[in-house]
Amino acid sequence: GLEHMADEEKLPPGWEKRMERSSGRVYYFNHITNASQWERPSG
C-alpha cells in the first residue's frame, strides 16, 4: 500500500532501485559509489 511506497522513497543518499533487464530481478544501485547489491541498503 501507500506505506510501502513511502518506504521505497527512504533509501540512503545515492541509492536507487533498478531492474535487471535480463532477469527482471530488482536490485539497488548507488550512483555515488557505483555500488550495487540485491539487498535493500540500510542507513
Rank of each mutant, 00 (worst) to 15 (best):
A35G: 07
R18H: 07
I32L: 11
Y27A: 01
G14V: 02
K10G: 12
R25A: 06
E9Y: 07
G14N: 08
F29W: 08
I32R: 05
V26I: 14
A35K: 15
M5D: 14
N34R: 09
Y28K: 00
D7E: 10
M5Q: 12
P41W: 00
R40I: 08
E39F: 05
G43L: 14
A35I: 15
E20N: 08
H4W: 10
R40L: 08
S36D: 03
P12F: 02
E3G: 11
K17Q: 10
L2P: 12
S36V: 15
E20I: 11
W15S: 00
R21Y: 11
Y27D: 03
R40D: 05
S23H: 04
T33E: 04
E3I: 12
H4K: 12
M5H: 11
E20D: 15
Y27S: 01
E39T: 07
M19R: 11
S22K: 13
K10Y: 12
A6Y: 13
K10S: 12
Y27F: 08
P41R: 00
P12D: 02
H31P: 08
P12L: 04
R21A: 15
E16N: 04
K10V: 12
M19H: 11
L11F: 02
Y27Q: 03
V26F: 13
G43E: 13
S42G: 10
S42K: 09
E9N: 08
Y27T: 01
P12M: 03
N34D: 05
A6E: 11
E3V: 11
W15D: 00
M5I: 13
W38M: 07
Q37F: 03
E20Y: 07
G1F: 13
T33G: 01
N30R: 00
F29A: 01
Q37R: 05
E3N: 11
E39I: 05
S23T: 15
R18N: 02
H31G: 06
S23N: 06
P13E: 09
E20L: 08
W15P: 00
E3H: 10
W15I: 00
I32W: 06
R40M: 07
I32A: 07
S36Y: 10
P13L: 08
P41V: 01
M5T: 12
A6H: 14
R21F: 12
G24Q: 06
R18P: 00
R25Q: 06
I32G: 05
E9S: 08
R18E: 01
G43K: 09
G1K: 11
H4D: 14
H4P: 12
E8L: 06
G43C: 15
H31E: 09
R18S: 02
W15L: 00
P12N: 01
S23Q: 04
Y27L: 03
H31V: 15
T33Q: 04
F29L: 02
Y27H: 03
L11G: 00
S36G: 06
N30V: 01
M19S: 08
N30G: 01
E3D: 10
S23D: 06
Y28A: 00
G43P: 10
K17R: 11
G24C: 09
N30T: 00
M19I: 15
E9I: 08
E16I: 08
K17A: 09
N34P: 01
D7T: 10
A6R: 10
F29I: 05
R21E: 15
G1S: 11
A35Q: 15
L11D: 11
R40T: 07
M5L: 13
M19D: 03
S42A: 09
W15V: 00
P41G: 00
W38I: 06
R18Y: 05
E16Q: 09
P41N: 00
N30A: 00
E9M: 08
E9R: 07
W15R: 00
A35W: 08
A35F: 08
W15H: 00
R21M: 14
E39S: 05
E16H: 07
Q37M: 06
G14D: 05
S36P: 03
Y28G: 00
G1A: 12
E8S: 10
G43N: 13
R18G: 02
N30Y: 04
S23K: 04
G43V: 13
L11V: 09
E8Q: 10
P12H: 02
W15K: 00
S42Y: 10
S22E: 13
T33N: 05
N34V: 03
G43Y: 14
E39G: 05
E16Y: 03
K10I: 11
M5S: 13
N34L: 12
S42H: 10
E3L: 06
W15Q: 00
S42D: 13
V26P: 08
